[in-house]
Design a protein around this nucleic acid. Sequence first.
DNA 1: CGTTAACTTGATAGCATTCAACTAGCGTGG
DNA 2: CCACGCTAGTTGAATGCTATCAAGTTAACG
Lengths: 243, 243
Amino acid sequence: MTAHILHPLVRKLQTVFDLSEKEKEAVLTLPFLVRELKAGQDIVREQDRPSQCCVILDGFAFRYKIFDEGRRQILSFHIPGDIPDLQSLHLEVMDHSLATLVPTRVAFIPHHALQALLHAEPKIAGAFWREALIDASIFREWVGNIGRRPALARLAHVLCEIFTRIRALGLSDDHSFPLPVTQEELADAMGLSTVHVNRMMMELRAGGLIRTPRRAIIIENWEGLKEVGQFDPAYLHIRRSVL
Amino acid sequence: MTAHILHPLVRKLQTVFDLSEKEKEAVLTLPFLVRELKAGQDIVREQDRPSQCCVILDGFAFRYKIFDEGRRQILSFHIPGDIPDLQSLHLEVMDHSLATLVPTRVAFIPHHALQALLHAEPKIAGAFWREALIDASIFREWVGNIGRRPALARLAHVLCEIFTRIRALGLSDDHSFPLPVTQEELADAMGLSTVHVNRMMMELRAGGLIRTPRRAIIIENWEGLKEVGQFDPAYLHIRRSVL
DNA sequence: CGTTAACTTGATAGCATTCAACTAGCGTGG
DNA sequence: CCACGCTAGTTGAATGCTATCAAGTTAACG
């Protein structure tokens, strides 16, 4: 069977609860428009008033804000199946921007179609609620990660999080995963400078915790990395069955 | 007319949309249990599995996590009308704790009653969605505030936010507001040390931006404070009519 | 191969932390 | 009523983590 284009969304929802055939059908018959975006391209911008949401189909995306003097803060990373601008269903104006990290395919789904789906399928509505709340939980963890952890732990923690989320989706079965993120982007995500990220990265490698072949990460010592980053995945609210 | 005990919740919802009499009635007939809590008392703790949500009736509350070696990160402050643990409706296990800042009255409402309300009153369900999404938006702003702003701006920004939220609720009509927060708590909210908060506070006072009579803040120069904190209230998604 | 983006390295500067002590305010009890 | 004691706020000195600046090196790609 060939996978439906919106399959990544179904797969993501299935990590939250078991979809019935009818529910799966309801998701897969959503109207959508696919776009292929290049790396580093904005999908939505701060102050926009979107009339649609976007599903990441493959690739990676991130949300960000620009502060004084061009200082950028990356707010979250997004992987296939995510709907990073789901909030626009209820908040008219974007308070941040969304962009691609690498060449990425996204599907745009009109707000009214999503509203109709959520109205017709309460269980799916619940799953969307859950997703949005997990989103918020991740922000909380980032607040603490940036506010209260030194640079090395901060980096280890971010790597642990990305790996855990990718793995929960079944996109990695060993301890390696694609990380198409430059050190500059990591720096902007962690509130650090590029130079310092580089040094922390080297320290993790020197400690035998990770290896970094081109554009990817191999975790050599998962327990050690978790330890350094004080990583406890509880805040990701991943169902045990998926882990 | 004497105000109903749950009136703070109605007032908060009314800052989001205009409730019909029927909707107002539905909120006010929610079953609840009132508790009077002393200052510095936990309402819910990390790892708890609540079966109810709490509404702040009067007083102040905050969410926090404890990191390595007892380092605390405060994640958000909450004012009357807020439901800081609304997420527990969809996320079983608490990923953080919730505590009072001062003596505070809270109303506990069982999950099932809230579920029933949201099912019966779609507009209220929408308002709750909005609240939860604004919650997340505030976390995003905090990520950037902590990650990308120097201490003085960080402090100014936090003060601007608290003032704006209190004012939007109609709890302050001039430029003063109660701020029952110690410098230690501010420090834990901003990822700074107490000593440094103290110095930044003095700097704001020296600049004629604020005055701090006991347990309160008077903003002497609102434009100036916004400027220092680079404060733009867009992320609070407050309806214009309320501002 | 040339060119550009990403990464690496070294030196210096600075913001914020830590440690330690001291002061002011306030409630409580003798 | 005043003293004690606690909490919150204030101050100074020294340290340190991280930023900044400036080059240099490697890797990717046409």
